[in-house]
Amino acid sequence: MSSTSKSAGDDLLFDAPGPRGRRRIRSATGLSLLALAALADFVWHQFDVNGQLAADQWQMYSTWPIINYLLVGAENTLLVTAVSAALAFPLGGLLALLRLSRHALPRALARGYVEFFRALPLLLLLYLFLFGLPRLGLTLPPFWQLVVPIALTSAAVVAELVRAGVGALDRGQGEAAESLGMTHWQSMRWVVLPQAVRRLVPALVSQLVRLLKDSALGYVVSYLELLHRSQVLGEYYHTVLSSYLVVAAVFILVNASLSKTASWLERRV
């Protein structure tokens, strides 16, 4: 699409600002940047006054014991993410197939599951696993108390992604396969699903970002993932701010890498 056609399309959505409007936009942008700069300077000054920028608050992160302590937390975070994805993605795919079934009962059961777990907050589900299951005589290790609720809620999201991906395909794909003698499930397996999943790869990779962030709820079940370890570290050494900032940088780096991967896959697909 040429730049001329893009501009024409944009004009249909809103009126292009005139000279006075452009001056207002530039003035508002300049004032916003000044306000953000003043806020950043104020926050930096407060950190400095309270000793949060002192060298002793940051030197500890150059020592191997502290680095190793955080690396173990990062390993636990990645393990939770990987196991949750390994459980959620196949379960979500199965739920999507049930929702696409031609029989009413599987569709109703799958829809009930999806609607229930999409509406239920993950934090509440974690508390149910933490306090509710022991009352029923079932106590899971902290790792599974965190992984299972994350996988259950994520499976509902994955199911909707796959269902939407299948619904976005031309219906003629499945009809053409069935006209060649394939059954409904054979056409889904060999024709429809491969095309839908290929298009959904970037969205599924983006779902990993959500799983990674959900793993930060490990403090609820006393599982020492990265964020929980940074909290323990900050409280023990009285470096709460620097601990959280270091871990935030790690999360941003990992999530940015996953987002870049999703963008690259989207271009490739």
Rank of each mutant, 00 (worst) to 15 (best):
F14L: 10
L94H: 10
A256V: 04
A35E: 00
N68H: 05
R135K: 14
L128I: 14
L204N: 00
F47Y: 15
L193M: 15
F143L: 11
V269K: 00
V197P: 03
L123E: 06
Y113N: 13
L97M: 15
A55E: 13
Y69M: 04
G18S: 13
S84V: 04
L226I: 06
K6G: 00
K6D: 03
A8W: 04
L140P: 05
L253P: 00
R111N: 10
L224G: 07
L212Q: 14
L211N: 13
Y127P: 03
A151S: 15
Q231V: 07
N50S: 14
Y61I: 01
V158K: 03
L100Y: 04
R135H: 10
G21H: 14
A177K: 03
G18E: 09
P202K: 05
L211W: 08
L109K: 00
T77Y: 06
R267G: 07
L100W: 07
L265K: 06
A262E: 11
A196K: 12
L152R: 07
Q145V: 01
S242A: 15
S259Q: 15
E115I: 08
S206D: 08
W64C: 05
A86C: 14
P19I: 15
S222H: 03
E115T: 08
S7H: 10
V209E: 12
L120D: 02
F116M: 15
S257G: 15
S62I: 02
L122W: 05
W58D: 01
L79Q: 12
L97N: 08
H238K: 02
Q59R: 14
R163P: 06
L95G: 12
R102F: 00
L146W: 10
A35V: 09
V240Q: 13
A74P: 01
L98D: 11
Q145L: 08
K260W: 15
F47H: 14
M60Q: 14
L33Q: 02
S257C: 14
L152W: 03
D41A: 10
I66P: 01
L138M: 12
L36K: 08
S230V: 03
S259W: 05
P121H: 05
A248K: 04
L204V: 03
A54E: 15
L120G: 04
L33K: 02
Q145H: 00
A38L: 12
L169S: 06
V80G: 05
V247Q: 03
S154H: 00
L100F: 02
S2R: 12
L133K: 11
D15P: 02
L94S: 08
A74R: 00
D15S: 12
F251P: 03
D48H: 12
V209A: 13
A86K: 05
H103Q: 15
T139K: 15
V221G: 04
G132I: 05
I25D: 08
T29P: 00
V201W: 06
L265D: 06
L79R: 12
I67S: 01
L200V: 08
Q195E: 13
Y69H: 11
S257F: 14
L136G: 08
A8H: 07
S27W: 09
L152K: 02
L105Y: 10
R23L: 12
A104D: 03
L133V: 09
V72R: 07
R198V: 02
S230T: 08
H45G: 02
Q52R: 13
S7Y: 10
G30T: 08
G92V: 09
A159N: 09
V157S: 11
S215T: 13
A55M: 09
R198L: 11
